[in-house]
Amino acid sequence: MKNVLIISGKEDAGRLFLGEAKRCAETKQAPLKFATVDMNTLAADDLEDADLLLLDPQISIADVQAVSKDATPIAVIPNDVYGWLNGQALVKFTCDQLDLFPVMD
């Protein structure tokens, strides 16, 4: 199971996206565990167990790297995926980032 942390600029948006991502990961039987945190409250402790950090498109990679103590991979969620809260596309994007098995559409 891979732990994926979604870092968003707005807590409500992150929670909405989290629900979609969890549902789609379960449906696709992808070994992913999603969590979310607001960038404004992000602390180094939030990043400890993450295998991948996914950023909402408005979050700066440099801002997250300033908080991170290790070399956890970071990827920016594509605008079309984040803007439409497309959980299925997020699961596929996440699997691609982690080199996991391909998720069938």
Rank of each mutant, 00 (worst) to 15 (best):
A25T: 11
L98W: 08
D105Q: 11
S8Y: 04
D46T: 10
R15G: 07
P102F: 01
I7V: 15
R15H: 14
P73E: 07
L52Q: 03
F93C: 04
I59H: 00
G87M: 00
M1I: 09
P57T: 00
A89Y: 08
K33F: 06
D38R: 04
D38A: 10
Q29N: 10
Q88E: 10
Y82E: 02
D38T: 12
Q58H: 07
T27S: 11
E26A: 11
K22S: 05
D12K: 11
P78E: 02
F34V: 07
D99H: 12
C24A: 08
T41V: 13
D70P: 05
L54N: 08
Q65R: 14
D12Y: 08
P31W: 07
I61H: 06
C95Y: 02
Y82I: 03
D105P: 14
D96T: 13
V37N: 02
A62P: 10
F34K: 03
P31R: 04
Q58K: 12
E26H: 11
L100E: 13
D45S: 15
T41D: 14
F93V: 02
F93Q: 03
C95W: 01
A43F: 09
K2A: 04
E20H: 10
P78W: 00
T36K: 04
T36P: 00
V76M: 07
L16E: 12
K10D: 10
T36M: 14
K33S: 15
N86S: 08
D63K: 13
T41W: 11
V37S: 02
L55P: 04
D46W: 08
L5T: 07
Q88M: 13
F34S: 09
N86V: 06
Y82H: 01
Q65G: 05
D96I: 03
K22Q: 14
L18R: 06
N79A: 14
S8W: 05
A35K: 04
I77A: 00
V76S: 09
V67D: 05
A21M: 10
L52P: 01
S68W: 05
D99V: 01
D46A: 12
L32C: 13
A62C: 06
Q58I: 13
M1Y: 13
A13P: 00
A35Y: 01
V103K: 11
Q58T: 15
A13S: 11
L54E: 07
W84C: 06
A25S: 15
A50Y: 00
W84A: 11
T41S: 13
T27D: 14
C24I: 01
L16K: 08
V76Y: 01
I7Y: 03
L16P: 03
I77S: 00
A35V: 04
L98C: 02
D96K: 14
K2G: 05
P78C: 00
A44G: 04
K69R: 10
Q65L: 11
A30S: 07
I74K: 05
D46G: 05
S68Q: 12
L54C: 09
M104G: 07
A66L: 13
V64H: 04
E11K: 06
V4I: 08
L85S: 15
D63S: 14
N86T: 05
A21C: 02
L55C: 14
L55I: 03
Y82D: 01
R15V: 10
N86A: 06
L98H: 02
F101Y: 14
T27Q: 13
D51G: 11
G19Q: 12
V67P: 02
V81Q: 00
D63G: 05
Q65P: 01
A62R: 13
D96H: 12
D105S: 15
